[in-house]
Design a protein around this nucleic acid. Structure first.
Lengths: 126, 126
DNA sequence: GATATGGGTTTCCTTTTGGAAAGTAGTTTC
DNA sequence: GAAACTACTTTCCAAAAGGAAACCCATATC
């Protein structure tokens, strides 16, 4: 019999575990969310800062992604009393609880990247 | 100055870290991949088994998702010498290295779910 | 009043994703 | 040779995602 993957003593296909994973994926989906979170980790940013730093994103997508991140409590939005008005975005404490996931994804992705490279170079040696 | 999230001594927005996270997300994207992986963790499965167990998936999507998982080395495909021909899908050893990510995502998702529930019930108490 | 900056929203369009149903192909069963 | 089973692939369509450009509102500048 094939061995199974267990998470907290439950097999991974336990429906509640799969649902939980889907919930997490839903919050991080879209083309830009992780890049935005990464950008904000470097410090609080205003809308235009983000648009400049997140290469390629348009105002519409930036606005939409920020709204979703805010609704989910991962990013905060603060209107500053400046002239003209500026808006500051920041990672929340809750957003920082994503760190373990991001760490594991970064680790795995780097490992995967070097594995892919190796198989391109050495897959058919000689 | 706002504190930053660090992963292995690098700030999360380090481009290579973000790229690695994107790589990982790309492999797990789509509506069904995680469910398929979860299903296969319960044991090897044939095409029709998967179509029965992954509720709601159609043959086209199942085929496509399995191909992508196979290309990325997460799932193996074995044609068995039966009549009629059957095909067995299984998680690879490499696919099992996703476990830490899946564990963190399951943990976070469950925490998130209970937090959302709590805020629905107790957000405005009394 | 024309222009610029900040922070968006709206419109229109294309691309991508995903689903239902039918078709393909090999083999066995009747 | 018609039907059924496994394992897909193809076609056709609808919905969602995403992008470019224009537009809106406020303030300030020239």
């Amino acid at each position: 019999m094939k061995k199974k993957i267990f998470i907290d003593n439950k097999p991974l296909n336990c429906p509640s575990q799969l649902k939980a994973i889907h919930d997490t994926m839903d919050l991080l989906n879209g083309k830009w969310k992780i890049t935005i979170i990464g950008c904000l980790n470097f410090g609080n940013k205003r809308f235009m800062d983000l648009q400049r730093e997140v290469t390629g994103i348009g105002a519409k997508m930036l606005s939409k992604e920020l709204q979703e991140l805010e609704i989910n409590g991962l990013v905060s939005r603060t209107v500053l009393n400046t002239k003209p008005v500026t808006v500051e975005y920041a990672i929340t404490a809750y957003g920082e609880t994503l760190r373990p996931i991001l760490r594991e994804m970064a680790n795995w992705g780097q490992h995967h990247r070097s594995k892919v490279k190796a198989s391109l170079n050495g897959g058919k040696p000689g």
